[in-house]
Design a protein around this nucleic acid. Structure first.
Lengths: 199, 199
DNA sequence: TTGCATACATACTGGTTGGTATGTTAATGC
DNA sequence: GCATTAACATACCAACCAGTATGTATGCAA
């Protein structure tokens, strides 16, 4: 009847949703427990503090999300520009409504917590670095096989691409308008196109 | 000895800094009052609720900031691409350290509050719209005098430019690294350059 | 079957929150 | 100079917060 791993996951998922909605600082442990039907005993058995719970959400939930959505799909990819365009389209479709209403969890937490807690800042920075490296590596491979212009600074381009993605998601979140996300994404696609090697 | 307007401004400025640091939800009225040396009597004499104080910060402080830094300088500007490049450089230099540590107040609030409070969302959205329109108008004037390519969708380009600016500031805030801001800005400059009409 | 640690639930605490009710003082109009 | 109101200060409140102390039931090992 008892399954502590599952209980932990329930708490983690509920915390993820709560944080996604209200941010970490305004996230209420009482609300998380009310949503799960569990009690403080369970929560503090699995997580020593609220901060530890937040860290776990970053390390286990958000980290995995970015890996699955962005890093892994880029590892085997011949034309990184095309791949990024497809991933953008897919991301916009898959998580469309949720992200348009509540934004990208990674960006939300990074904006809220980077100037408040050093642990959050570093953990989130680590995820951003992984994401950027995945893009930079893909661009470099694209250069090797002639799909990407040789004069592109892959690292700097990766930084700008991630920033633009988060920027567009942020605009769409405030506007609550998925069309604005597409309009903004079109600008990014236009930029990506300039990275393509032209015959 | 008494100057209510000045008192109000002191409260407003302190609230702006507190919100800039901790966000609106985690902003503490007690901390604001401690920083000003004033008391609750003064605060609640000038502002009926915490929400009203937050709204005032948006309407009076942040609104003015965007107007002065972005909208106004673009009104009389022959080559909008060059102007934007200069404004980016200037913004990075002027507010450099503060923004690198605590981010753009407009973006911070928009990300935090858009999914929490409809009033904040609309007020901040209004500021974003003004900002975008200023850029779009400048681009359109650039098209009229041949500085900007005629096939550019000025509205969509303005959306992307604002998104990219906020995205770059967000990346730099998390990294706490002004060099990353410049690297990211270089990507934006590269995009802006593609808008230029080529001879 | 007994012993014992894990996995929770319940009840409570000190501190902080936004907000209010009541004083007190300074400026202003007459 | 006197009354009135604006401009604050002080004291207080219920609600909520993260966190803790204690109690209880489950499952497993011996």
């Amino acid at each position: 009847m008892r399954s502590p791993d599952q209980t932990r996951k329930i708490l983690l998922d509920a915390a993820y949703e709560e944080i996604h909605h209200y941010g970490f600082q305004a996230a209420s442990l009482s609300r998380i427990l009310a949503n799960t039907g569990l009690t403080k005993g369970a929560l503090y058995h699995h997580f020593p503090t609220k901060l530890a719970l937040g860290y776990a959400v970053v390390d286990e939930v958000i980290h995995e999300e970015i890996l699955n959505c962005w890093a892994t799909p880029l590892t085997d990819c011949q034309d990184p520009v095309d791949c990024l365009m497809n991933l953008l389209q897919k991301a916009a479709e898959d998580t469309g409504d949720e992200f348009v209403e509540m934004g990208c969890p990674l960006n939300n937490l990074a904006q809220e917590m980077s100037s408040v807690d050093e642990g959050f800042r570093q953990k989130l920075g680590h995820i951003y670095t992984l994401w950027r490296q995945a893009i930079a590596n893909a661009l470099a491979r694209g250069q090797a096989n002639g799909k990407v212009r040789a004069d592109v600074d892959t690292g700097a381009a990766a930084i700008f691409i991630v920033a633009a993605i988060e920027g567009c998601l942020g605009m769409a979140k405030n506007a609550r308008d998925i069309n604005l996300l597409f309009e903004c994404g079109a600008g990014l696609l236009h930029y990506l196109d300039t990275l393509h090697a032209k015959p």
